[in-house]
Every structure is written in C-alpha cells, then in structure tokens.
Design a protein around this nucleic acid. Sequence first.
DNA 1: CGTGCTATTGAACCAGGTCAAACATAGTGG
DNA 2: CCACTATGTTTGACCTGGTTCAATAGCACG
Lengths: 239, 239
Amino acid sequence: MLTPAYRRHAVVPPAIRRLTSLAPLDADDLAWLAAAMQRAHQVRVRRELMVEGREVVHPQLILSGWAARVRILLDGRRQFLSFVLPGDVIGLYRQDAPIATSTVVALTEVSACPLTDTDLSAGFTQALAVSGALDEAFLLAQIARLGRMSALERIADLMLELHERLTANGMAEERSFDLPITQEILADAMGLTAVHVNRMLQTARRSGDLLWANGRLTIPDPAALARQVGRTPTRVTKG
Amino acid sequence: MLTPAYRRHAVVPPAIRRLTSLAPLDADDLAWLAAAMQRAHQVRVRRELMVEGREVVHPQLILSGWAARVRILLDGRRQFLSFVLPGDVIGLYRQDAPIATSTVVALTEVSACPLTDTDLSAGFTQALAVSGALDEAFLLAQIARLGRMSALERIADLMLELHERLTANGMAEERSFDLPITQEILADAMGLTAVHVNRMLQTARRSGDLLWANGRLTIPDPAALARQVGRTPTRVTKG
DNA sequence: CGTGCTATTGAACCAGGTCAAACATAGTGG
DNA sequence: CCACTATGTTTGACCTGGTTCAATAGCACG
C-alpha cells in the first residue's frame, strides 16, 4: 500500500483532521478515506451540492471550501440554517429513500467527495455518528441564537462557534481564521439585515471583541468573549 | 401471546399510531413495542426527562403528554428548541457514550418508556431513522421561523406544524387540536414575549386564521393558512 | 376568600429594519 | 490606461415591530 498523500505533507487535510478527532481511525479507515477522496469533484460558488426535496444519492464529505444549508421563503427571504465546513458530511440519512431536508449551496469554490456504502468502515461509523450529533448540536445552538440573543450576541456566539469548528479541523489560528463570506450572508445566517450586521461589526470592533478585515476574522480574546456571551464548547460524547 | 392492549380498544395509542405511519411494523415489532410500553413511567410537569450535558442511558419513547427541548441562557432567557409529542423518541444517539445535547422538560404530565437495545428490531430501525430525519426537519423549520418570519407568521406556521404532527399520531381533528401550553411557553418557543404573543393571537383570531380557547386550538382553514404562510408538509422519504 | 398562575390591556420605548445614497474594490473589455 | 459594470461596504435619516413595565382581570385551588 502506498503512503497516503497527506502523510507526505507536513499538513493533514482538514477533512481528515476533523474526522480523526471525532473517533480513532485505523490504517484501514484512512485508506478508505484516501480512496474516497480520489473521487472528489469541484462545486462552483452559488452552485448547489444538494437540493431540498430531491432524493439523496449518497452522502458527501466536504474537503475544502465553505458551504451552507439554506432555506428560501416564497417571497425571497433567505435563511441560512448552518454553515458547512471542510470535514463536514452532508446528506447522511439512515432511512430508505431519503430526500434532502435542505438545500446546500457553495459559498466559495467547494471540493467534495461522495461517500459510497463501501466507504463506511468500522471506525468511520463512529466518526460519522459523532459528526451527526455535533451537527444537531449546532442546529440547536442556532435556534437559541436566533430566538433569544441580541444581534451583537448572535454574531459573537457564531464567530466563537466557527472558531471552535475551524480549530477542530486545523483551519484556525489561536485567535483568528479566514472568513470567506459577505456581510449579507452573515446577516441571512443571523436573521438580521446586512446594514445592521455592518453596524454591529463596527460596535464589536470598537469594543475590541471582534475584528474582521480582508476576509480574516480576529477574536482578540476568545475565552473572554465566550465568557461574555455565556458560551461553552459544544460536546456530544463523554470523555 | 396475549392480544396487545391497544388491539382491544377502538383507538390505537398515539405512539404506535405514529411509528407505524413512519415504517411498516410487523407483528414482532408491535410485540416488542407492547413490551417496552409496559415499562412506562410518569414524569410530572416541569420535571426533566433528560438533562443537557448529562450522559444518556437509553432513548425514550413518549407515550402521552407534551414535552419540549429547552435551552436556558445564563441570565435566565429561555428558548424552547422543539416540542416533543407522543410517538416522538428522545435521546437516540448512534455514537458511544453520548451526552444529551439538550434538556427535555415535561410541559404536561408525561408518560414515557425507555427503549433498550433489545427493542430495536428490524422494522423499528427504519421507523426510528425516519423519526430522526423528521426531528431534524422540524429543527430546520424552527430556524427558518425564528430567523425570517414575522411574529404572526411564526405562530401560524408552528400551529400548522403541530397540527400536522398531531394528525400523524391521531391526536388532532380535521381543523383543531388540544394545545395544553401557556402563551408564555409559546412565546419562549417563538422567540417572542408573552405580551406580544397575546396580541398576535388576537389579531389571528380577528382575521379568522386561528382560534385558541379553553386549551383547544382551531384552524378554520388549514389549507388556506398554509398557503398564506407558504408552508408545505414536511417530508423526508420518497413515496 | 386569599394566593398563585395566566391572560389582557395601555403607554412609552428601542433594537433593528427600511430606504437611499455614497464609497470602495475588482474585473473586464475597448 | 481608462471607462464601465458588478458586487460589497458604509453612512444617514427615519420608521416600526416587538419589548418593557405596570396595572387589571379571570380563574382554579386549598
């Protein structure tokens, strides 16, 4: 067996980084994963990886780029349900003949690979289970944000969540990460208008809580901000 | 084998009614279910069926009564994440050593039974998978409501959702159902204040969209209201 | 009858929305 | 190299849906 590509590089790809952090994967698991990653395909910005109501062929593992689950109301109002990051899996359902419960759209150029049944080795199953549980936890957090937090709190809380998730797959620094979205997208994720998001970001910048410039978000003091908005790390397994 | 209790009655219990509507259950499945239901226990109003962050022992099937998943912020703000109705399953995780991602609290007296591993027969697995997918779909709907709908739309949309769910387990009439909650609970579910919920309910009543009196909610014309708020039935499987 | 919810109403207030214009910035094609 | 277009950010003035606070009323229950 050849040494997988990621072993020859200094950096482990985000998707592998994340999955191995969810459950211990052995050599077999990693080999399957490497094979799956061979089948990666690119998705252009604004294109859909999955469409609500349509039948799901197979789950997909995101390898790079940002995507989001989205729902559009009849009059055009748009709500992003969650962000989809490298290492995330979409379209994983356990029932027969599943249809997608939401549309997933690429926010940047995205690379993703299908996960066929044969990819689901032992260690993998556990990793996907944990991943699914985390997905749910993030949906719950999103509900609490939209329902009961102020605009400023929502933004701070989301940024901390993204920082947490991007840290898990090696895409974040100690106190910053690339944030390749527009203020309008952030607004549609937080149930706000772009104008108000802009103003709140300025407020956050003035108070030194959040700096966002040139596509990079900086949280000067993540721990302090987390304390301030009452956020605790998301956990779904014991130990 | 004795005839299960529900066969001797004219009405099928809501939990069984719902589960059989999610996937065909054979005699074996139903026998297991009947056995599980023997182990039912009661939970008093305001008591918790499950606590966020605590390890989950086994999943529980709700047999009667209303519950809700809830999150409380540090300063006391409360957000209900979803309603839990008879036939719903809570605490079903696929990973090892799972911890609950949210607290589930009884809104009325609740009867629930644990689902031990032995309960998970063949047909059951599919039913639980569909149930899980529906749960997720309802969380997504909740996000869209909170993020992008007006107070009136949120209430109408939620009532239609509840009507849909209660119809599935036989607890709703053609155009009405029992709604055993307070306006304050509804407010905390919709990210509003009780005062505003009260006013919007009056508006809905005046316009003839929604009538709520004596713990019973009536939707004079469900189809028309659904059209009005742009709601389509929640589906997660083909066919 | 008091005590404790829950529902209802009124009045003042404000977080966030709306509308519209200005200002970047980056392609892109001539 | 310069319009020209397109997309994103920023700002100002004004507006409104929903909140807040406080008081009243209805009702079940011990």
